[in-house]
Design a protein around this nucleic acid. Structure first.
Lengths: 173, 173
DNA sequence: TGAAGCATGTAATTTGTTACATGATTGG
DNA sequence: CCAATCATGTAACAAATTACATGCTTCA
């Protein structure tokens, strides 16, 4: 049996929602996840194939023209996906933050904090705009995820803010 | 010229501190980074070799016995490392959090929040113990990094806490 | 002295990324 | 009708993970 990775579950999950989709369509749907777990262009082509070999998705190929491949879940695939969904992970992720790595390896805090603060502020604004623009049609999971993202960006700002040059110790936050 | 990855800079940075080291010793030093950016056993063997080919580290090999390889920075290596340190990144990392992925793809929030809350509480306790046990000998960068970790764990608790089953909306935090 | 475990390394496999290539569509 | 861009896919490459293999110590 093949090993199912997060990318596998992303593909399975997207296919469940869509009913069926071509790799290109999957790519479009995966855009939603790009800040959380991005999926590479080439991966939306290779991963469904792997899943097809394992019998978790079914592949249908156009007869003529561009011979597009279209995928949909099999029963086994749906089951594998729901098994995963039903089993809460206790796994934590590493931070793997490039800025923090520089800090840890000895970079000057000041300039680094400047750059990082700005980048995180930009990202926060993006998330907040997304949240504001979201009507009630956004599924619960997606909204909560967005809230998590916003919370983390705020945390990053709390962290970097007082480290910036010219930031007095009293003006944190 | 080869491409320098975060792992490359970790190796360069550790070698700068240590003066020189065998892969095994590098592995030991890298333990410090395991929550931030873990480095695989096999990588501390392969990466210094790559760096040696590029002239950024020098390799010396024991004549007899186990023929251990020992590495130290060259001037070019030290320079490459400091160039990187001096150039604050604006790059942000993706969250890539497995629990959040499950949530986003439709998992029941309750049980997931339970698991994640517990895991993050454990990690937070670990960080706090490390902070408490740290004397003044801990370098600034390392201490700040640890503080960032603590901040993020607290943020995760804030996030998951109210989603747990049996958690009323008023008892968040 | 021999079993456990630490130290050291390579190989195989899997994953992820970048680059390349070309077919369809559409708006100017 | 042709240039841009969208859509579709493969191939080559690089990186990371897992598995394997074995030499040295040490202490029961």
């Amino acid at each position: 049996m093949i090993r199912l990775t997060p990318v596998s579950y992303i593909v399975l999950g997207l296919l469940e929602r869509a009913g069926e989709a071509t790799p290109y369509q999957l790519k479009g749907m995966a855009a939603m996840l790009e800040d959380l777990w991005s999926v590479q262009h080439a991966q939306v082509y290779s991963e469904p194939r792997r899943l097809a070999e394992a019998g978790l998705v079914a592949e249908r190929r156009e007869a003529g023209g561009r011979r597009r491949r279209t995928y949909r879940l099999t029963d086994a695939g749906r089951e594998a996906f729901h098994d995963w969904l039903r089993t809460p992970t206790t796994e934590l992720t590493e931070l793997r933050d490039p800025g923090l790595l520089q800090l840890c390896l000895g970079a000057e805090p000041g300039p680094l904090a400047e750059s990082q603060h700005e980048a995180h502020a930009r990202k926060l604004a993006e998330y907040e705009a997304a949240m504001a623009g979201a009507g009630d049609e956004m599924p619960l999971g997606a909204r909560l995820t967005l809230e998590a993202g916003i919370g983390h960006e705020r945390e990053w700002l709390r962290f970097w803010s007082p480290l910036r040059d010219g930031s007095s110790s009293s003006d944190n936050r």
